[in-house]
């Protein structure tokens, strides 16, 4: 059985009425940017296992998870109902969707909605390596106002010449990825890290691999 940790909710930040970050205080665990924890939620007389990407960096004290309300779901309503101080059990870190060293080629991050969560610490780590390779973030969300961590991302883009990010309205991610990195040129040396919910993730994977990018150059996590 996996080792369990018990944390307490130290802080809650509301990004939007249905989207929050929970900061978990207590055990400080070592993890790699991009990994997730597996929350053990007492719901309906049983323990639900719900994975959440870690949105904070390994260097920070509290673990941050960022989630939105999943209509009809069981885990997210429970988590979003917890007040500051509530206990939360979890296992981890888990997962192999990670970036923790200097990129060796132009690196493109593609996020949709809360899929930015694992990409945020990856991006921070990549920038911290002072890489000479360009870093790009394409972030799909309904509107620019719905971008999570928008102020931080804008500041990163100002401070790091190597980094640029663009917002893509919902539903247009695939076309924009195709326009920029499939039809745009013949360079196939880029690395991709893709995270989002549902069918868009394998759709992007298949688009890029089908266009000639190496299988292992296209890393992804589908929630």
């Amino acid at each position: 059985m996996a080792l369990e940790h018990e944390a307490r909710i130290a802080r809650i930040v509301e990004h939007a009425p249905d989207t929050r970050s929970l900061f978990l205080g207590g055990p400080r665990i070592a993890f790699r940017p991009g990994q997730f924890i597996s929350c053990l939620l007492p719901v309906g007389g049983e323990t639900l296992i719900r994975p959440y990407s870690i949105a904070s960096s390994p260097e920070e004290d509290d673990l941050e998870i960022c989630l939105n309300l999943v209509p009809g779901g069981l885990g997210s309503p429970y988590l979003l109902s917890l007040p500051v101080g509530a206990p939360l059990r979890f296992t981890g870190p888990w997962g192999t969707f990670v970036l923790d060293r200097a990129p060796e080629a132009e690196t493109v991050f593609v996020a949709e909605g809360t899929g930015i969560a694992p990409i945020r610490p990856m991006l921070r780590r990549a920038l911290a390596t002072a890489t000479r390779h360009p870093l790009r973030l394409l972030y799909g969300a309904e509107s620019r106002e719905r971008l999570l961590y928008r102020t931080e991302l804008e500041a990163m883009a100002r401070e790091h010449a190597a980094f640029r990010f663009a917002h893509v309205p919902g539903g247009q991610l695939r076309d924009e990825v195709a326009r920029r990195w499939v039809d745009g040129d013949a360079d196939r040396s880029r690395r991709f890290f893709i995270c989002g919910v549902g069918a868009i993730v394998p759709a992007l994977r298949d688009l890029l691999r089908g266009a000639g990018y190496e299988r292992r150059a296209v890393q992804y996590e589908k929630w």
């Binding site: 997730f36 296992i49 888990w94 997962g95 192999t96 996590e221 589908k222 929630w223």
Partner: peptide, 28 residues
């Protein structure tokens, strides 16, 4: 650990016999 959502490898098993009776694996 991922709740059975094909996002980790913690449910890795080795099928010693009967593998052809299982669904084919997908890219994910």
């Amino acid at each position: 650990a991922c709740g059975g959502n094909c996002a980790c490898t913690t449910c890795h098993v080795i099928v010693k016999a009967g593998g052809t009776k299982l669904s084919a694996s997908e890219d994910s």
